[in-house]
């Protein structure tokens, strides 16, 4: 069953200053196991890329990190995941504040059918982050600015968010996530539905965001992983094969499967 011995990940899966630590994580959909015994640290203020062929479990693993898998009835997670030394699967842990701390951006841009302003203000409103209209306006403007969208939409804040272009919509979703002021941002193939120009803008944005946030990004594109991340984790059939600094993964991969993947022998 196991491709690598005892699920022993090659390279350096652990970090000195971890923000998130995952230990022996397994995920089951009903009887079917999707993730096998994955242990990985995500360091503070780093961008880590999760790569691997389709169906390798990288998105599933990402969704464990803020318990998005809870929304799927039949999904079950084993092992430990800690955020700042706090077990997020503790029964006493409330997912609501957890997800406020670990935000998520999805594969397809999914703006709410509301105005641009209300899309951004949604998170701060539900979490009670602003106590006045002025404060809320500030948060909205700041978030849009950080997402690089402010100049494009400042004159039509009350137009529907669904009216923006695909790339703008995705930046709107990132701005929406930033507005809640999370500590970690999870991105699930954020550029897969976008054209190259929009993709470049998002990648630029990710690089800027690294200063303040810890980012884990699932990507299908090795170039993207190489451009935005400091570390890269390679998943294969639900197992974490290798984790190493990005340069190293793309130049001298440790494991034969990693090499096969980055040289394009399967994908």
């Amino acid at each position: 069953m196991s491709i690598i011995e005892n699920h022993q990940t090659h390279g350096a899966p652990f970090s000195d200053s971890p923000k998130l630590t995952a230990r022996n994580v397994g995920v089951y959909y009903g009887d079917k196991q999707a993730i096998f015994d994955v242990s990985l640290d995500i360091g503070a203020n780093e961008v880590i890329a999760l790569i691997g062929p389709s169906g390798c479990g990288k998105s599933t693993f990402l969704r464990c990190l803020n318990r998005m898998n809870d929304t799927i009835d039949i999904c079950r997670v084993t092992g430990d995941i800690e955020l700042d030394k706090e077990n997020i699967y503790d029964p006493k842990m409330d997912v609501v504040p957890l997800r406020a701390r670990v935000g998520m951006v999805f594969q397809k841009p999914n703006p709410f059918p509301k105005s641009i302003y209300d899309n951004i203000a949604y998170g701060p409103r539900i979490h009670g982050l602003a106590h006045s209209r002025v404060e809320l306006d500030e948060i909205v403007e700041k978030s849009l600015q950080r997402a690089g969208l402010w100049s494009e939409v400042k004159d039509r804040l009350h137009a529907p968010g669904t009216g923006l272009s695909g790339g703008q919509q995705q930046r709107l979703c990132i701005a929406r996530t930033i507005a809640v002021d999370p500590e970690v941002i999870l991105m699930d193939e954020p550029c897969s539905a976008l054209d190259p120009i929009a993709t470049a803008k998002i990648e630029e944005l990710i690089d800027e965001l690294r200063e303040n946030y810890t980012i884990a990004i699932v990507t299908h594109s090795m170039q993207q992983a190489a451009r935005v991340s400091q570390r890269t984790a390679y998943f294969h059939l639900g197992q974490l094969i290798e984790v190493n600094p990005t340069d190293q993964v793309f130049t001298t991969p440790e494991h034969a499967l990693t090499e096969a993947y980055i040289t394009g022998r399967f994908g």
């Binding site: 504040p97 701390r101 979490h127």
Partner: peptide
């Protein structure tokens, strides 16, 4: 004062009302 609270504290603060 709001500004003195971190985001995390604000979220925690809102939780009682929201759970109800």
């Amino acid at each position: 004062t709001n500004t003195s609270m971190t985001t995390r504290e604000k979220v925690e603060h809102s939780m009682k009302r929201r759970r109800a």
